[in-house]
Design a protein around this nucleic acid. Structure first.
Lengths: 136, 136, 136, 136
DNA sequence: TTTT
DNA sequence: TTTT
């Protein structure tokens, strides 16, 4: 079991790319605030990279914008890679398989969108093919 | 482990009451929409009763109103009681110990509220005393 | 958003039935303990009804037994029905779309099971047809 | 909102340390398997670093061992630091505030342990003091 | 008894 | 590199 639920704001507009296999991947960072502000201090936040695949990727790319408050459900993924000195590095991101508007005005969209594909979110363990590597 | 995360809208203004022990309890119902709308159909929803205790109860009572979109984290609780024919009945509710605005405009409040008590949410298994029965 | 994560023990062997549409449905109750025991007291528990559909239903029926510790991920569903006096009654259950062994010995099974269908859990909002009513 | 729920096995015995402020911190890595095995392939896993504070830290250090299956609830935390070339690096971990045995035999312990302190898990935003930096 |  |  590997479940993550986040609510936060996009730090930038999302980026949409395609794998060599022509599968859509959308990426953005969520600023997730921690608790309430302390007297005289700014609220702290965690900046968490999110990756979304396929139909959901296109949905995010179309409707999400910088500053928008959204909620996502997904799983934590830890990828390892070698830096240019040949040292092993680790990248952690949240692979989201459900995305929501957490914003009054925008959440009306969900009432209008009727793409049946969107009603069946890709499951948490997306069946990536050998060549469906992340394009970044 | 017993964890529930919901996002939905209040079907009415919340109700604030006090136990005989003078502990605040706030209750409301969340309408949680299911997936996306089918062509020509209305979106379906689950109507889920929420209970919040103590400081958080007063917070909800103060800031939450009918129609507002909010998110809650809590646990499922099943209470049994006897109806007037002496038959055992079951009531299921979500006891929330974290509450959030899922609404752009209202979520500004979190940046301004500085009650340190609110920064330490009551934990999921609230140490209710013998006489801290639900007042409803 | 409507997300539930539970870990607990089956109070009985699960029951497997089929809808008129021949879709498998498995149901059981999870006893989910609350926190730790108080001195001299028994641990309290919530008894939460679980419903599982399709392939996952058959999986549960095959491998789950009374007393086994398992974990489930799903959503809360509130169904209304009329009792024999014509009064509206409400039933709350958790519709699980991911199920796990939370038990050392049994969790080995997951290493051996290779049904690709099981790797793609039905999503949270199962597309029930008009006649896929719960058979109970 | 920042919620993580994981179930997996410890890759090593946990490590217990103390901050300069004498607060206990326990750290370990969870191997969380992804879905089911593919034909002829090994199951893949994510290796996720976990941090636990205070009473819970001492609990984990006492009862958790390499290979044990456990479940945790917490939040994702992203820390930044400067490497020895002065480059900004990011470390992601899960700060757990609830820990459970997901293992038949060990979960009996929870029935016996009666430390009231353990019944009140530290909340997700632990009020770390200025000098309660992670000791690693 | 239900929200947008 | 960060959001309100």
């Amino acid at each position: 079991m590997n479940k993550v639920i986040l609510m936060g704001r996009l730090t930038r507009d999302p980026e949409l790319r395609y794998t060599s296999n022509n599968l859509a991947v959308c990426s953005f960072t969520l600023a997730v605030n921690r608790g309430f502000a302390k007297q005289g201090e700014e609220r702290q936040a965690d900046f968490i990279p999110i990756v979304v695949w396929d139909k959901q990727a296109e949905f995010c790319s179309k409707y999400f914008t910088k500053g928008l408050q959204v909620a996502v459900v997904g799983r934590i993924q830890v990828r390892s890679w070698d830096d240019n000195e040949g040292k092993k590095r680790y990248t952690t991101e949240v692979v989201a398989n459900e995305v929501y508007f957490a914003d009054s005005k925008k959440s009306d969209i969900a009432d209008k969108v009727q793409d049946p594909q969107l009603a069946e979110p890709a499951d948490g363990f997306y069946p990536l093919e050998e060549d469906d590597e992340l394009p970044f």
